[in-house]
């Protein structure tokens, strides 16, 4: 079930809350408390904009357990505007083609389901940046 495990990550999963290093100003996501760039303590919370661009992408057909219902789905590496990269699914694609460098924005969606009596895990996915928001 792992309820606590997912609950602990709610700020990251629902709001993309990361950290900023008070020493070198690096923006950090996922949060890790020790700055990966300068090695100093970095515990100051930082709110990411949820905007970024596609670094690479692919389609998953042979889905792992818990993800079969969503298959096939598009998985991507997203380079966030603030610097870090995240792994996330792309969603709301309609018929639009995906390209490396395409601007995207974060949305909250269902990530996985563990059967009728199991948990539904929600978190961030990314969609093409809407024209009105651009």
């Amino acid at each position: 079930m792992e309820v606590a495990r997912h609950w602990r990550l709610k700020k990251q999963r629902y709001a993309m809350t990361g950290e900023v290093c008070p020493h070198c100003q690096s923006k950090i996501f996922p949060p890790r408390d020790i700055c990966p760039d300068c090695g100093e303590d970095a515990r100051d919370l930082y709110q990411f904009s949820g905007h970024g661009e596609v670094y690479s992408f692919t389609t998953v057909y042979d889905a792992p357990a818990g993800f079969e219902a969503g298959a096939p789905y598009t998985l991507a590496l997203i380079k966030l505007d603030e610097g870090p990269m995240v792994t996330a699914q792309l969603t709301d694609l309609d018929s639009r083609g995906i390209e490396i460098g395409m601007p995207v924005e974060m949305v909250t969606r269902k990530l996985r389901s563990d059967g009728e009596r199991g948990m539904l895990v929600y978190g961030y996915k990314f969609r093409p940046l809407l024209a009105a928001a651009a």
Partner: peptide, 17 residues
């Protein structure tokens, strides 16, 4: 917590690369 939970598989990660 940040890759597998997104449905990332080993094959998909190789495809991204």
């Amino acid at each position: 917590d940040y890759e597998a939970v997104q449905g990332a598989t080993r094959t998909a990660q190789a495809a991204l690369l």
